[in-house]
Design a protein around this nucleic acid. Structure first.
Length: 932
DNA sequence: GACATCACG
DNA sequence: GACGTACGTGATGTCC
């Protein structure tokens, strides 16, 4: 039976994606009975595969067959042309979770299933077809995709499975008016709106075929374009030559895709009932299971007819019991666990380390869980506490695998495309592993699943999720590590205790995943999770690990200067106060100001102490010299303690760079939060503060490049609330605050004063924040009635805002959440509360879709950015809500800006068509102060 | 550990 | 008619 591919062989290549989409659109949205998982497309796909197998059992049966899939949406063609396929709609919500199931279905039918990163299915098909043809065999491509027609000829044919019609050279000529080897030339001219291939404007397939037939080839046509009689057509071909040549490169299939398999691997295999039956039963395809069981002559498996209990109930079935957890101390045991992981195809992973900072913490142990209650801990670097040991207390404890050996065994699993690694905040563990040379992928994250489904309802830490969704209180870490001065690191914890704690974490993570994963599509946030949460993990991990260079000398010098100035101010302040006191103590300051000096306006906070925030001191500055001095002192104190001093302690000894950590679930709206250190609040608003940014520098030969969205929230407001005047102003490129001022206060644009503009700007921001008369009055320091007048006028001049606010609050009250343009849900549990809470909740509800949509937009840009700047000597370093900061080799600055800007400005596409353009402004310089 | 303050978008 | 209010964050220092 086994012989190598050659003359007499017949290869069938099935366009898997076409099957999936046809199945999806042909069938109603079926769901699996037991848990509601959408399986309509999988069902249709299986039926089509089965019918295919049935239909091809005859004398003309293929000897080799493969189903080819697309992998990911980014391919090398996007590097040629970033708008390639850019107008494709995103995958329907309920189709997305079915995609991996169609791979499993193919394998269950024992048919080779192939896909490749960075290449389209069409390229793999082309390569295989060329190889088979060259080997003297026949090829049938089962697809009706016209892009594949260029391959027809010399024993290669297409089969339109739908119409059961074979397409040979004549068929291609019928469709394109040229022979297959000229199809790409026609396509290059005609373009393709579906794939967004530009082509030559005004030239369709008919004209293109005419021209190609006349000139023989695209190259001759373009070289001799001046011979064309029609002036417009001639001009188009001359002007758009580059675009046409690009189009050809886009439609030309790659016959040299570097495949990691050969034709011989595709030999037809008989279905294996042992694999196929369990899969069909798992999908609960009753009819198909029975039909195929009959055909194969096996007993059909029993498919339960009762809906499964709710996941909440099932997750509790197996009790948590530390006695079940295994401590893995040798290779044989670890191998056994790895075998189980490979069998399942997924594993929950957790790392234990000596600290919370992924860049400095040492790996202590790894825990794994494969099913509820079935978890293990692999201790790797636990240390004895024995003080009289010859090596001090640093000796490794007995009975641990060598870290190197354990990682060598786990690396292939952690990096295996076919094994899903599940974590709770897996970015942390992925970074730890990365420092040991292991790239963890693909991943799922229970924290992100929770955030996508329940953002705004509760926190997403493991303890909280375990309590809430598993009704289980995890073993607390406190008793193990102690607290305060006597606290120890995890490597000093005894291995038995550590096993109970660590394995349980993996166990909990696995159970949370089993609880959450099936709910994702029911909550209709699969796309949010798949496009805005999960893909961000590797992107952020990369940025964080790369870090940004910070010049310690610059900070140190500034710190000294600040200290001197502060000392001077402190002496002055004490002099003015007539006594020495702690200027940093608001309590003491309040007593000096309001009791001793009897200045007006002393208000007490909730602790009974006087309140002395900046705006109060600013008002008092007209009465006395002291408050002004205190304000100066406070500014310096802030800059010194939070920035020039603290930042130095965050410079990593190994890298000389500062590595922040982004929290994906930190902000309710979808924004990121930056910690340890927070690099999203580095000063910029005052000249003195901005100088801190001079310490953020590029490596020699590089520059920092910053791109930030211009007025993104106001643009989104204009779109969401449908404010025509705002949209128009943006499209005209006007100064948006000046335009608002002009509209509101009837001042012509050319007579605008900074003061009037400032007021309008405050109102614009106020609207985004869920404006109130009181808030605006305080911000602008004007009487409340006047502020209310501004707001009323604003609503009058920009109708749409009011409706947006009312509708948003009504929606929140009705549904308990609001959502962004990309479907992110932000829950608003307080929206129906009584009392002052309600006001907060309403304003937050008004703000969330705007801030959240902006956050989604930059997330989309970040996810696409690595591919867009791939090949350029450029790295993305930081995100500051509407800004991305890059470090770029000097000679690649322009290319990087162009690529990054295209990604940022197009980030909403194709999911959302905004009425307002997004604009990103760019800057560059040796340091962040210059770049911003 | 709560609170006040202030840095950013 | 009175609530007390701009939205979203994180870090630091004081004070109990």
């Amino acid at each position: 039976m086994s012989s190598s591919f050659g003359k007499g062989s017949h290869l069938h290549l099935i366009d898997g994606s076409a099957f999936i989409f046809r199945a999806y659109h042909a069938l109603p949205p079926l769901t699996r009975k037991s848990d509601g998982l959408p399986i309509g497309a999988v069902s249709g796909f299986c039926n089509m595969i089965y019918r295919y197998v049935e239909d091809n059992a005859g004398p003309d049966a293929p000897t080799h067959v493969a189903v080819i899939f697309d992998k990911g949406s980014h391919t090398f063609r996007n590097d040629l042309y970033d708008l390639y396929k850019a107008n494709r709609d995103e995958m329907p919500e309920d189709l997305r979770p079915q995609i991996p199931l169609t791979r499993r279905a193919t394998e269950a039918f024992n048919i080779a299933c192939k896909e490749m990163e960075n290449y389209e299915a069409d390229d793999i098909i082309a390569t295989l077809a060329c190889q088979a043809r060259d080997a003297g065999g026949r090829v049938t491509i089962i697809s009706s995709d016209k892009d594949l027609m260029q391959l027809v000829g010399d024993g290669v044919e297409m089969l339109d499975a739908m119409k059961n019609r074979r397409i040979d050279r004549d068929g291609v000529f019928e469709k394109f008016g040229v022979w297959p080897d000229q199809v790409v030339d026609v396509q290059a001219l005609a373009g393709d709106s579906v794939d967004n291939v530009p082509g030559a404007p005004g030239i369709g397939v008919k004209t293109a075929a005419l021209l190609i037939n006349e000139f023989g080839s695209l190259e001759d046509l373009l070289d001799r374009a001046d011979e064309i009689k029609q002036p417009k057509r001639r001009q188009t071909l001359i002007d758009k030559r580059e675009q046409i040549e690009l189009s050809k490169r886009l439609v030309q299939l790659d016959c040299d895709t570097p495949l990691d398999f050969t034709l011989d691997d595709l030999e037809v295999r008989d279905p294996d009932p042992e694999a196929l039956m369990p899969f069909l039963a798992e999908m609960e395809f009753r009819t198909l299971t029975k039909r195929i069981a009959d055909k194969l002559g096996v007993e059909p498996p029993v498919i339960e007819d009762t809906p499964a209990p709710e996941p909440e109930d099932s997750a509790e079935e197996i009790a948590f019991d530390p006695a079940n957890y295994v401590c893995v101390r040798d290779t044989e045991t670890l191998d056994a666990w790895i075998a189980q992981i490979r069998e399942r195809g997924y594993v929950a992973v957790d790392t234990e380390t000596t600290g919370l900072n992924e860049m400095t913490a040492g790996l202590v142990g790894i825990s794994l869980a494969v099913e509820p209650g079935h978890a293990c801990y692999v201790p790797l670097a636990h240390r004895d506490g024995a003080a009289d040991d010859l090596f001090g207390s640093d000796a490794l404890a007995e009975g641990q695998m060598a870290m190197e050996d354990a990682l060598a065994l786990l690396k292939p699993v952690l990096e295996d495309d076919a094994i899903l690694k599940i974590g709770q905040n897996i970015k942390y563990d992925a970074k730890i592993f990365r420092r040991h040379g292991v790239d963890v992928a693909p991943i799922d994250d229970t924290m992100l699943l929770s955030y996508a489904m329940y953002g705004g309802l509760h926190g997403h830490g493991m303890d909280a999720l375990s309590e809430r969704y598993l009704s289980h209180t995890p073993i607390p870490i406190k008793p193990l590590l102690g607290s305060g001065k006597s606290a120890i690191t995890f490597d000093k914890v005894g291995i038995d205790e550590a096993t109970a704690y660590a394995a349980e974490d993996a166990d909990i993570t696995l159970r949370l995943w089993q609880t959450f994963k099936p709910r994702l599509h029911r909550e209709k946030v699969t796309t949010v999770y798949e496009t805005l949460e999960r893909p961000l993990v590797p992107v952020l991990a990369e940025m964080e690990m790369h870090g940004i260079k910070v010049d310690r000398e610059v900070l140190s010098r500034m710190s000294n200067a600040f200290a001197q100035k502060m000392a001077g101010l402190e002496a002055e302040i004490h002099e003015l106060a007539g006594e020495e006191f702690n200027v940093g103590s608001p309590k003491q300051l309040g007593e000096i100001l309001f009791d001793k000096m009897s200045l007006p306006g002393g208000k007490r906070g909730k602790t009974g102490a006087y309140s002395t925030p900046a705006d109060v001191l600013e008002d008092l500055a007209t009465e006395h010299e002291l408050p002004g001095r205190v304000l100066d002192w406070r500014q310096l104190s802030k800059l010194k303690s939070t920035y020039t001093d603290a930042l130095q302690t965050h410079i990593n000894g190994d890298t000389g760079r500062v590595h922040t950590s982004y929290s994906i679930t930190g902000a309710n709206t979808g924004r990121l939060a930056s910690t340890d250190p927070n690099l999203q609040n580095i000063p910029v608003r005052t000249d003195e503060g901005r100088r801190i940014r001079e310490a953020f520098v590029a490596e020699p030969g590089n520059v920092l490049v910053s791109l930030d969205y211009s007025q993104i929230e106001l643009r989104i407001l204009a779109h969401i609330a449908g404010i025509d005047a705002l949209k128009q102003a943006f499209s005209d490129g006007l100064d948006i605050h000046a335009m608002t001022a002009s509209e509101m206060f009837d001042v012509p644009l050319d007579e605008m004063t900074p003061e009037v503009r400032r007021r309008a700007k405050a109102i614009n921001f106020g609207v985004i924040y869920g404006i109130s008369g009181f808030g605006l009055a305080r911000n602008l320091r004007i009487p409340r009635g006047e502020a209310q007048g501004f707001i009323d006028r604003y609503f009058e001049r920009f109708p749409g805002i009011r409706a947006y606010m009312d509708d948003t609050i009504a929606f929140a009250k009705e549904n308990g959440y609001v959502q962004t343009l990309f479907g992110r849900r932000i829950h608003t549990p307080e929206i129906n509360a009584k009392g002052p809470h309600a006001g907060f909740a309403k304003r937050a509800a008004i703000n969330a879709p705007i801030q959240g949509t902006a956050a989604d937009v930059i997330r989309r840009a970040m996810v696409r950015m690595p591919a867009a700047i791939d090949g350029l000597p450029a790295r993305m370093l930081l995100q500051v809500h509407d800004e991305l900061l890059f470090e770029v080799a000097e000679d690649a600055v322009d290319d990087t800006i162009a690529a990054a800007r295209a990604v940022m400005e197009g980030a909403a596409d194709p999911a959302v068509k905004l009425d307002v353009d997004l604009v990103a402004d760019a800057g560059q310089g040796a340091n962040w102060a210059e770049a911003h």
